[in-house]
Design a binder for these strands. Structure first.
Lengths: 194, 194
DNA sequence: CTCCCCAGTTCACTCATTGAACTGACGCGT
DNA sequence: ACGCGTCAGTTCAATGAGTGAACTGGGGAG
């Protein structure tokens, strides 16, 4: 696909990984999925990514088992991270750590907490209160000291993902305000990370 | 540059990081740098990357302070990771872990050891013998159980980086066969990772 | 002077990305 | 039934980046 086939030897798992998630936009799509974005249109508007590209990326990610595509009873389509996709959290975290360290002098842009006890997570995702390696669905993410609040954010989707929330929890869309969206899959069997 | 400018909000360090190292080839260049590749021509032949692209990537990486470009006394040019570049090791490691987990059923393609005591490193880079978080220059990398030995490897550069070696140690090039390349910069003050 | 190595450039070709408009399925209110 | 809005996904012309091969130009060695 994007990989020039000879994307380095087969003997490098880095190269292999990049073949799947190394294309432009892909990791941002996955980040959004961690933040609870699930709908085609939400990915498109939040990332401002051309819909044709989004279609391609989602197709590849589904094909590789990073996402699953769910046609809901309501007719809606949802893309959700599989266990394999959740396994990418350390990658996302490592990128965030690096960016925070070298491009965010005023502190991390997003802080991570253990939802159960409110403890801050260290760079490796361990809760500084209870000492556990926190599984992804128990991670609560919230704006950190380096976050630049643009008073009225942009679209509702961006606003939603900038609100303190647990990872993987679907964003609440202003549409269908009080429907039965309450606790659908809740803590699904999204497997454990890492 | 490659980033469509509106590469998501400024409030995401993931997006910021991807602006620097998210382009095609870039992370492979950095991986090679960790493995001791330093010369323009070596990057080009090992990665089989068009030289024009390599020029662009190196230029950006130098500009961002991920690499430094050294004109040696001998007239040679060397690209080396800065501390900021070494800080990308957790990113590289996370990608390798993921690729090993999901695309290398027979085990990791490259094993990491603590050079001082030979202990294997866990996924977070901690030595299982001494328990320390091993700084990058002390990490020894070697073919693991998932490594596919293609008997006569390809170019000498690929052969070199598939040989057990410490990270950041410059590869020995068949050129100048028995020069004083032995223990040059050794454990440089390349800072500590993470 | 000549040959070779090496970093980097040039250039024509191809292919992916872009952005905007469009399609078609579905659900809802009247 | 009808029209309307939403949503997933497609189409398409224009742009831009990646590709590969050939070329430039400087330095060292014989």
């Amino acid at each position: 696909m994007t990989l020039p086939s000879t994307y380095a030897d087969r003997n490098c798992s880095l190269a292999r990984s990049l073949e799947i998630v190394g294309e432009r936009w892909t990791l941002l799509i996955i980040r959004d999925a961690f933040f609870g974005v699930r709908r085609f249109g939400d990915f498109a508007t939040q990332l401002k990514i051309p819909r044709a590209v989004l279609t391609n990326r989602l197709k590849l990610l589904v094909q590789e088992g990073v996402l699953i595509r769910d046609e809901e009873a309501t007719g809606g389509v949802e893309y959700r991270l599989t266990a394999k996709g959740v396994g990418l959290w350390p990658v996302v975290r490592a990128f965030m750590n690096w960016g925070d360290t070298f491009y965010s002098p005023s502190g991390v842009k997003r802080a991570q907490r253990h939802d159960q006890d409110g403890g801050l997570l260290d760079r490796e995702g361990r809760c500084q209160d209870c000492g556990l390696a926190v599984p992804v669905p128990e991670i609560r993410i919230e704006p950190g000291p380096g976050f630049c609040r643009t008073d009225s954010d942009l679209d509702p989707v961006s606003n939603a993902i900038n609100t303190p929330r647990r990872l993987l929890e679907p964003i609440v869309r202003p549409r269908t305000p009080s429907a039965g969206e309450g606790e659908l899959s809740a803590t699904r069997s999204t497997g454990r990370a890492d």
